[in-house]
Protein backbone atom coordinates (compact mmCIF):
# COMPACT_ATOMS: atom_id res chain seq x y z
CA UNK A 1 0.00 0.00 0.00
CA UNK A 2 2.72 2.39 1.03
CA UNK A 3 4.80 1.33 -1.92
CA UNK A 4 1.85 1.99 -4.17
CA UNK A 5 1.37 5.48 -2.75
CA UNK A 6 5.06 6.09 -3.19
CA UNK A 7 4.82 5.00 -6.81
CA UNK A 8 1.81 7.20 -7.29
CA UNK A 9 3.69 10.28 -6.16
CA UNK A 10 6.75 9.44 -8.25
CA UNK A 11 4.55 8.69 -11.24
CA UNK A 12 2.65 11.95 -10.94
CA UNK A 13 5.91 13.89 -10.83
CA UNK A 14 7.14 12.19 -13.95
CA UNK A 15 3.72 12.28 -15.62
CA UNK A 16 3.33 16.01 -15.02
CA UNK A 17 6.22 16.77 -17.34
CA UNK A 18 4.84 14.38 -19.94
CA UNK A 19 1.44 16.03 -19.63
CA UNK A 20 2.89 19.44 -20.47
CA UNK A 21 4.68 17.99 -23.50
CA UNK A 22 1.62 16.07 -24.65
CA UNK A 23 -0.59 19.11 -24.36
CA UNK A 24 1.73 20.98 -26.71
CA UNK A 25 1.59 18.13 -29.21
CA UNK A 26 -2.21 17.98 -28.96
CA UNK A 27 -2.65 21.74 -29.46
CA UNK A 28 -0.70 21.61 -32.72
CA UNK A 29 -2.50 18.49 -33.89
CA UNK A 30 -5.80 20.21 -33.21
CA UNK A 31 -5.19 23.20 -35.46
CA UNK A 32 -2.96 21.69 -38.13
CA UNK A 33 -3.61 17.96 -38.09
CA UNK A 34 0.14 17.60 -37.67
CA UNK A 35 1.74 14.97 -35.45
CA UNK A 36 4.74 17.05 -34.49
CA UNK A 37 7.90 14.94 -34.33
CA UNK A 38 9.85 18.17 -33.95
CA UNK A 39 8.30 19.02 -30.58
CA UNK A 40 11.28 17.75 -28.57
CA UNK A 41 13.62 20.09 -30.42
CA UNK A 42 12.19 22.93 -28.35
CA UNK A 43 13.90 21.28 -25.39
CA UNK A 44 17.14 20.83 -27.33
CA UNK A 45 17.27 24.49 -28.30
CA UNK A 46 16.22 25.87 -24.94
CA UNK A 47 18.62 23.47 -23.22
CA UNK A 48 21.57 24.95 -25.09
CA UNK A 49 20.31 28.45 -24.39
CA UNK A 50 20.26 27.51 -20.71
CA UNK A 51 23.76 26.08 -20.97
CA UNK A 52 25.02 29.30 -22.55
CA UNK A 53 23.41 31.31 -19.78
CA UNK A 54 25.11 29.17 -17.12
CA UNK A 55 28.41 29.76 -18.86
CA UNK A 56 27.69 33.46 -18.52
CA UNK A 57 27.14 32.93 -14.81
CA UNK A 58 23.35 33.15 -14.65
CA UNK A 59 21.51 31.42 -11.84
CA UNK A 60 18.57 29.00 -12.24
CA UNK A 61 16.14 31.78 -11.32
CA UNK A 62 17.19 33.67 -14.43
CA UNK A 63 17.75 30.63 -16.58
CA UNK A 64 14.26 29.23 -16.02
CA UNK A 65 12.39 32.16 -17.61
CA UNK A 66 15.01 32.30 -20.37
CA UNK A 67 14.34 28.65 -21.20
CA UNK A 68 10.62 29.35 -21.53
CA UNK A 69 11.15 32.40 -23.72
CA UNK A 70 13.61 30.58 -25.98
CA UNK A 71 11.22 27.67 -26.31
CA UNK A 72 8.36 29.96 -27.37
CA UNK A 73 10.53 31.84 -29.85
CA UNK A 74 11.91 28.60 -31.30
CA UNK A 75 8.42 27.22 -31.73
CA UNK A 76 7.37 30.35 -33.63
CA UNK A 77 10.50 30.36 -35.76
CA UNK A 78 10.02 26.71 -36.76
CA UNK A 79 6.41 27.49 -37.66
CA UNK A 80 7.42 30.44 -39.79
CA UNK A 81 10.34 28.76 -41.56
CA UNK A 82 8.83 25.34 -42.18
CA UNK A 83 5.31 24.51 -41.07
CA UNK A 84 3.70 27.64 -42.50
CA UNK A 85 4.89 26.49 -45.92
CA UNK A 86 3.23 23.10 -45.77
CA UNK A 87 -0.06 24.19 -44.21
CA UNK A 88 -2.91 22.17 -45.65
CA UNK A 89 -0.55 19.66 -47.30
CA UNK A 90 -1.11 15.91 -47.01
CA UNK A 91 -0.41 14.09 -43.75
CA UNK A 92 2.47 12.40 -45.56
CA UNK A 93 4.14 15.76 -46.21
CA UNK A 94 3.41 17.13 -42.72
CA UNK A 95 4.84 14.09 -40.97
CA UNK A 96 8.02 14.04 -43.02
CA UNK A 97 8.47 17.78 -42.57
CA UNK A 98 8.42 17.47 -38.80
CA UNK A 99 10.62 14.39 -39.01
CA UNK A 100 13.12 16.40 -41.07
CA UNK A 101 13.14 19.27 -38.57
CA UNK A 102 13.75 16.83 -35.73
CA UNK A 103 16.97 15.67 -37.37
CA UNK A 104 18.00 19.04 -38.70
CA UNK A 105 17.98 20.74 -35.31
CA UNK A 106 20.04 18.07 -33.59
CA UNK A 107 22.47 17.99 -36.51
CA UNK A 108 22.92 21.75 -36.32
CA UNK A 109 23.84 21.53 -32.64
CA UNK A 110 26.12 18.63 -33.39
CA UNK A 111 27.81 20.79 -35.98
CA UNK A 112 28.10 24.05 -34.08
CA UNK A 113 28.34 23.04 -30.45
CA UNK A 114 29.71 19.52 -30.27
CA UNK A 115 28.65 15.99 -29.85
CA UNK A 116 29.73 15.87 -26.24
CA UNK A 117 27.48 16.25 -23.23
CA UNK A 118 27.29 19.80 -21.88
CA UNK A 119 26.73 19.74 -18.15
CA UNK A 120 25.47 22.47 -15.88
CA UNK A 121 24.78 22.64 -12.16
CA UNK A 122 21.49 21.29 -10.91
CA UNK A 123 19.81 23.34 -8.21
CA UNK A 124 20.76 22.10 -4.78
CA UNK A 125 17.23 21.11 -3.80
CA UNK A 126 16.66 18.76 -6.70
CA UNK A 127 17.98 15.74 -4.82
CA UNK A 128 16.43 16.68 -1.46
CA UNK A 129 13.60 14.67 0.00
CA UNK A 130 11.21 15.04 2.89
CA UNK A 131 9.00 12.57 4.68
CA UNK A 132 5.29 12.41 5.24
CA UNK A 133 4.82 9.53 7.62
CA UNK A 134 6.32 6.51 5.91
CA UNK A 135 6.49 8.21 2.50
CA UNK A 136 9.60 9.77 1.10
CA UNK A 137 8.80 12.61 -1.25
CA UNK A 138 11.28 14.34 -3.50
CA UNK A 139 11.23 18.12 -3.25
CA UNK A 140 11.70 18.09 -7.00
CA UNK A 141 8.54 16.04 -7.64
CA UNK A 142 6.59 18.34 -5.36
CA UNK A 143 7.76 21.40 -7.26
CA UNK A 144 7.07 19.75 -10.61
CA UNK A 145 3.55 18.76 -9.63
CA UNK A 146 2.88 22.20 -8.15
CA UNK A 147 4.19 24.11 -11.14
CA UNK A 148 2.34 21.80 -13.53
CA UNK A 149 -0.91 22.42 -11.71
CA UNK A 150 -0.34 26.16 -11.95
CA UNK A 151 0.67 25.92 -15.61
CA UNK A 152 -2.37 23.82 -16.45
CA UNK A 153 -4.60 26.25 -14.56
CA UNK A 154 -3.14 29.12 -16.57
CA UNK A 155 -3.60 27.15 -19.79
CA UNK A 156 -7.18 26.27 -18.93
CA UNK A 157 -7.85 29.91 -18.12
CA UNK A 158 -6.37 30.92 -21.47
CA UNK A 159 -8.47 28.37 -23.31
CA UNK A 160 -11.70 29.09 -21.45
CA UNK A 161 -11.59 32.79 -20.78
CA UNK A 162 -9.58 34.56 -23.43
CA UNK A 163 -10.76 35.23 -26.95
CA UNK A 164 -7.55 33.66 -28.20
CA UNK A 165 -8.34 30.48 -26.30
CA UNK A 166 -11.85 30.36 -27.67
CA UNK A 167 -10.56 30.94 -31.17
CA UNK A 168 -8.02 28.15 -30.72
CA UNK A 169 -10.65 25.70 -29.56
CA UNK A 170 -13.02 26.74 -32.32
CA UNK A 171 -10.30 26.36 -34.96
CA UNK A 172 -9.36 22.96 -33.62
CA UNK A 173 -12.98 21.84 -33.86
CA UNK A 174 -13.80 23.25 -37.30
CA UNK A 175 -11.21 25.40 -38.99
CA UNK A 176 -13.38 26.80 -41.75
CA UNK A 177 -16.28 27.57 -39.46
CA UNK A 178 -13.88 29.47 -37.21
CA UNK A 179 -12.63 31.50 -40.16
CA UNK A 180 -16.22 32.34 -41.00
CA UNK A 181 -16.48 33.83 -37.52
CA UNK A 182 -13.53 36.05 -38.36
CA UNK A 183 -10.85 34.02 -36.60
CA UNK A 184 -7.59 34.72 -38.42
CA UNK A 185 -5.95 31.43 -39.40
CA UNK A 186 -2.44 32.91 -39.19
CA UNK A 187 -2.93 34.24 -35.69
CA UNK A 188 -4.55 31.13 -34.34
CA UNK A 189 -1.87 28.81 -35.74
CA UNK A 190 0.95 31.05 -34.51
CA UNK A 191 -0.82 31.30 -31.18
CA UNK A 192 -1.01 27.53 -31.02
CA UNK A 193 2.72 27.25 -31.67
CA UNK A 194 3.43 29.89 -29.02
CA UNK A 195 1.27 28.05 -26.48
CA UNK A 196 2.91 24.77 -27.42
CA UNK A 197 6.31 26.43 -27.00
CA UNK A 198 5.32 27.83 -23.61
CA UNK A 199 4.24 24.42 -22.35
CA UNK A 200 7.37 22.78 -23.72
CA UNK A 201 9.43 25.53 -22.08
CA UNK A 202 8.04 24.76 -18.63
CA UNK A 203 8.64 21.06 -19.25
CA UNK A 204 12.15 21.88 -20.46
CA UNK A 205 13.07 23.56 -17.18
CA UNK A 206 12.32 20.38 -15.24
CA UNK A 207 13.74 18.10 -17.86
CA UNK A 208 17.04 19.98 -17.73
CA UNK A 209 17.02 20.22 -13.94
CA UNK A 210 16.63 16.49 -13.66
CA UNK A 211 19.21 15.70 -16.34
CA UNK A 212 21.75 18.37 -15.42
CA UNK A 213 23.09 18.37 -18.96
CA UNK A 214 22.13 18.63 -22.60
CA UNK A 215 23.21 16.99 -25.86
CA UNK A 216 22.31 17.47 -29.54
CA UNK A 217 19.88 14.57 -29.30
CA UNK A 218 18.35 15.65 -25.98
CA UNK A 219 15.03 16.30 -27.74
CA UNK A 220 14.39 12.73 -28.87
CA UNK A 221 13.28 11.35 -25.55
CA UNK A 222 10.86 14.16 -24.57
CA UNK A 223 9.47 14.17 -28.11
CA UNK A 224 8.72 10.50 -27.80
CA UNK A 225 7.06 10.89 -24.40
CA UNK A 226 4.99 13.82 -25.58
CA UNK A 227 3.84 12.10 -28.74
CA UNK A 228 3.06 8.85 -26.92
CA UNK A 229 1.12 10.61 -24.19
CA UNK A 230 -0.83 12.64 -26.75
CA UNK A 231 -1.62 9.43 -28.61
CA UNK A 232 -2.87 7.78 -25.42
CA UNK A 233 -5.10 10.77 -24.87
CA UNK A 234 -6.53 10.73 -28.37
CA UNK A 235 -4.33 13.32 -30.12
CA UNK A 236 -6.85 16.09 -30.72
CA UNK A 237 -8.18 16.09 -27.17
CA UNK A 238 -6.46 18.53 -24.81
CA UNK A 239 -7.90 16.97 -21.68
CA UNK A 240 -6.93 13.56 -23.04
CA UNK A 241 -3.34 14.73 -23.55
CA UNK A 242 -2.97 15.73 -19.89
CA UNK A 243 -4.46 12.44 -18.72
CA UNK A 244 -2.31 10.58 -21.24
CA UNK A 245 0.82 12.23 -19.81
CA UNK A 246 -0.07 11.32 -16.24
CA UNK A 247 -0.99 7.78 -17.30
CA UNK A 248 2.33 7.36 -19.09
CA UNK A 249 4.28 8.60 -16.07
CA UNK A 250 2.41 6.29 -13.72
CA UNK A 251 2.75 3.35 -16.07
CA UNK A 252 6.50 3.83 -16.29
CA UNK A 253 6.99 4.00 -12.54
CA UNK A 254 4.69 1.07 -11.84
CA UNK A 255 6.19 -1.11 -14.53
CA UNK A 256 9.67 -0.33 -13.30
CA UNK A 257 8.82 -1.19 -9.72
CA UNK A 258 6.78 -4.30 -10.47
CA UNK A 259 8.69 -5.95 -13.29
CA UNK A 260 12.20 -7.41 -13.28
CA UNK A 261 14.79 -4.85 -14.30
CA UNK A 262 15.52 -6.39 -17.68
CA UNK A 263 11.88 -6.23 -18.74
CA UNK A 264 11.20 -2.83 -17.18
CA UNK A 265 13.72 -1.39 -19.63
CA UNK A 266 11.14 -2.14 -22.29
CA UNK A 267 8.49 0.18 -20.87
CA UNK A 268 8.47 2.47 -23.88
CA UNK A 269 8.24 -0.43 -26.22
CA UNK A 270 5.38 -1.92 -24.22
CA UNK A 271 3.50 1.40 -24.22
CA UNK A 272 4.10 1.77 -27.93
CA UNK A 273 2.77 -1.71 -28.61
CA UNK A 274 -0.31 -1.03 -26.47
CA UNK A 275 -1.02 2.14 -28.45
CA UNK A 276 -0.48 0.32 -31.73
CA UNK A 277 -2.90 -2.37 -30.57
CA UNK A 278 -5.45 0.30 -29.74
CA UNK A 279 -5.08 1.68 -33.23
CA UNK A 280 -5.49 -1.79 -34.65
CA UNK A 281 -8.57 -2.74 -32.68
CA UNK A 282 -10.24 0.61 -32.19
CA UNK A 283 -8.94 2.82 -34.99
CA UNK A 284 -11.89 5.20 -34.88
CA UNK A 285 -11.81 5.61 -31.09
CA UNK A 286 -8.30 6.95 -30.82
CA UNK A 287 -8.30 9.93 -33.10
CA UNK A 288 -10.99 12.20 -31.81
CA UNK A 289 -10.60 14.59 -34.70
CA UNK A 290 -12.09 12.06 -37.08
CA UNK A 291 -12.54 13.08 -40.65
CA UNK A 292 -15.71 11.65 -42.08
CA UNK A 293 -15.37 10.13 -45.50
CA UNK A 294 -17.04 12.40 -48.01
CA UNK A 295 -18.43 10.93 -51.16
Amino acid sequence: MIELLQNLIDGLGRGSIYALLALGVAVIFGVMHLLNFAHGELITVSGYAGYAAFQAGWSWYLVAPLVVVVSIVTSLVIERLAFSRVRGASDFTLLLTSFGIHFLVSAIFLMYVSASVKSFPRPGWVANTYSIGPLTVEVFDTVVIGVTIVTLAVTVAILQKTMFGLALRAAAADFDAARLMGVRSDSVIRGAFALSGFLAGIAAIFWLMRAGNTTPTAGSDPMLKGVLAALIGGLGSLRGAVLGGLALGLAEVLLRSQLPASVAELTEGVVFVLIALLFIFRPQGLITVAHAERV
Binding site: R169, A173, D174, D176, V183
Partner: peptide, 29 residues
Amino acid sequence: LRAGVALVPEHRRIFVDMTVEENLRIGGV
Protein backbone atom coordinates in the same frame (compact mmCIF):
# COMPACT_ATOMS: atom_id res chain seq x y z
CA LEU B 1 -16.37 38.98 -42.00
CA ARG B 2 -14.53 42.13 -41.06
CA ALA B 3 -15.94 43.77 -44.20
CA GLY B 4 -19.40 43.01 -42.81
CA VAL B 5 -20.51 39.74 -44.38
CA ALA B 6 -21.46 36.90 -42.05
CA LEU B 7 -22.39 33.43 -43.25
CA VAL B 8 -24.47 30.89 -41.36
CA PRO B 9 -22.99 27.81 -43.01
CA GLU B 10 -24.84 24.77 -44.28
CA HIS B 11 -25.37 22.19 -41.53
CA ARG B 12 -24.89 25.05 -39.00
CA ARG B 13 -21.44 23.91 -37.92
CA ILE B 14 -21.71 25.13 -34.37
CA PHE B 15 -18.82 24.23 -32.06
CA VAL B 16 -20.26 21.25 -30.23
CA ASP B 17 -17.69 21.15 -27.42
CA MET B 18 -18.23 24.80 -26.53
CA THR B 19 -21.11 26.22 -24.55
CA VAL B 20 -23.80 28.40 -26.09
CA GLU B 21 -22.16 31.44 -24.56
CA GLU B 22 -18.74 30.49 -25.88
CA ASN B 23 -20.16 29.90 -29.35
CA LEU B 24 -21.66 33.37 -29.25
CA ARG B 25 -18.47 34.95 -27.95
CA ILE B 26 -16.43 33.41 -30.73
CA GLY B 27 -18.99 34.84 -33.15
CA GLY B 28 -18.08 38.23 -31.77
CA VAL B 29 -14.34 37.72 -31.97
